[in-house]
Design a protein around this nucleic acid. Structure first.
Lengths: 342, 342
DNA sequence: CTTGACTGTGAAATCGATTGCTGAAAGCAT
DNA sequence: ATGCTTTCAGCAATCGATTTCACAGTCAAG
């Protein structure tokens, strides 16, 4: 392993000078040249570990998401990576599996790494970021909030988006619209549930009945199982509001198997369905701004890494109706519209 | 920042002892206890940079894949992460975008990081791993081979799998089966193309005509565009073999829009379709062993990291017909079967 | 010609953990 | 009780780069 001392010896200068050359600090031109030449000949590559130990900085951003198999999060990750990469940062991916313990474990790893910053989709509202914040590692929450308000946060406008989506079902004439949402204490699941409830009250002028709500895991199986239960109610729903893309997939499978696809039973999917083949006619798809969430989160994190101080900021991205590929669209012409969701 | 010296002071021992406790080297029980307690109270987390500088080792595995938005690769990544995590390694994700330059750049970053090892799905057969291999960083290729044979490799049996899948179309009675595959010089695209050609010769006793083959990018748009072209041939195909999941998605979209879904035009998809909603009746889906590829790759890499020497090994995973979720299945009963592809 | 301001170099301390070496204490046999 | 081996804590060196600080040299003003 060739070190700056080797280079220094060969160039006839001190190690400090070599370091300065490599860090763009002013050094006499002839010395600069000698150092460059010596480094070149020796094939010198600075040791990042030594550098990091000294400066206690790194060029790695930890991205912690609950489900790497959900396209929503991978699209987001892709955006983070693009932004980070352009600034010379690498992205370390961590899959928390919606498990608070795994999440804390990853946070521990991240701070002891240490990483330059963390972008995190908290597994629950109770997620504590103290580990990172105490150590001064900037954290940006994305898609969901965490307990610590010091962290910047970027979320989609779940509440009004969900209300709007559910409302569209009511406007289409459905009355008993059920809600299939994610686990309790998962913020997006709570908010989308609330959004649906608001639309329900608005349309029916009554509190939504408990039997029309199923809170389960954000999985295809969860959506399928919920749908089975809903359809076997004494008074089954005439439409279903699915709070995320995986749930919606499960719902569609069961509806199809039962021969009750829209418009027989109405359906709204909150979250786009990438690689979708045939979205049955009549499914209302709300596209979440996954890419934008990632871009904004990465940008905010880089600002913090660059030293920006101040209280936690919050960005709420709207779900624009009919927007190119991030709004809400009503699929009613078979395939024409689905091609947007590539 | 609390260091081992702080812990040592508080526990009334030397820093060396604290280090030993944390590295599982025998230390008198009462001292061990005192150190644990002091570390706990101070919230001590060892600084990995210092440790790495000293031991010149790291616990990071670089995972380099061509398309983070393709579920095939994320499932694989998930498996790698699970295996790595269990052994205390973190996974750094790199998205090469099928771009050889980006890939080399990442390799450069990886070796200067340095990482403990690299798992790579090479962007092309020409990918050079010298950068890593010269530095002694172990590399495992997954899904595709690279130029350097020193690296361990784990692939699926693309050639016979593709032949088998295409053969099923011929056995179903189709004669003009077209092939839509990925870019030239991408190994999986080449092999699946060849597999299709073998089945074609076998069935028709003639060389496959050029106009039935379209090589495009592994994207939904590529599949859609290819299908348009195929359908507008003077003598259009009566079935299509799509060489990966994204291509198949594009094909299905166009077939649906044209009202030519199977069985009007037969279709085989090489690669599972996660989150699939409604796979039209009659699509032949070949599930690739994504998870297993990741597991095997990670395991082989860890063996190398642990010091295993010897020539590059190769593992070829079979595509078992009718296997639970990694074989080939013929979807002909609407939804019953698709539920396997979760 | 002297003094002060300014540049830029080199010596040495430093980041925080690991580890070779030394020697004290304990264990065991004679 | 003595001598020999074994065990294990502590000291100090070390990994390789960055950075503080002291100081030499240059230049302009007085």
């Amino acid at each position: 392993m060739v070190t700056i001392y080797d280079v220094a010896a060969k160039a006839g200068v001190s190690a400090a000078t070599v370091s300065r050359v490599f860090n763009g600090i002013k050094v006499r031109p002839d010395m600069t040249e000698a150092v460059r030449k010596a480094a070149e000949e020796l094939g010198f590559v600075p040791n990042r570990m030594a550098r990091r130990l000294r400066t206690s900085s790194s060029e790695i951003i930890a991205m912690m998401i609950p489900d790497i198999e959900n396209p929503f999060f991978t699209v987001m990750t892709r955006a983070v990576e693009d932004v980070a990469r352009a600034r010379g940062y690498s992205v370390m991916l961590c899959n928390t599996d919606e498990d608070p313990e795994k999440e804390q474990e990853y946070l521990r790893v991240a701070v002891s790494e240490p990483v330059a910053g963390v972008i995190l989709a908290p597994s629950s509202i109770g997620t504590r970021l103290d580990l990172a914040i105490e150590r001064g590692v900037p954290v940006v929450c994305v898609d969901r909030h965490a307990a610590n308000v010091e962290a910047d946060t970027v979320v989609a406008d779940n509440l009004s988006g969900a209300t709007a989506a559910a409302r569209l079902l009511f406007e289409a004439g459905y009355r008993r619209v059920a809600c299939v949402s994610g686990p309790k204490r998962v913020e997006t699941a709570d908010l989308r549930h609330q959004g649906w409830a608001a639309a329900y009250r608005e349309a029916n002028g009554a509190e939504p009945p408990d039997d029309l709500v199923i809170r389960t895991s954000y999985t295809v199986a969860g959506g399928a199982e919920a749908t089975h239960r809903l359809l076997s109610l004494p008074e089954p729903p005439d439409a279903i509001f699915a709070a995320n893309n995986k749930l919606a997939s499960g719902v569609i499978r069961v509806l199809a198997a039962e021969g009750k696809l829209p418009p027989t039973v109405g359906l709204a999917s909150f979250g786009g369905l990438p690689l979708v083949l045939l979205v049955p006619v009549g499914v209302l798809v709300t596209h979440l701004p996954a890419r934008r969430l990632g871009e904004v989160a990465a940008t905010m994190l880089l600002e913090r890494i660059d030293g920006l101080k101040g209280p936690g900021r919050e960005v709420v991205l709207p779900l624009v109706f009919g927007d190119e590929d991030e709004g809400i669209e009503l699929i009613d012409g078979a395939l024409a519209q689905t091609s947007r969701s590539s």
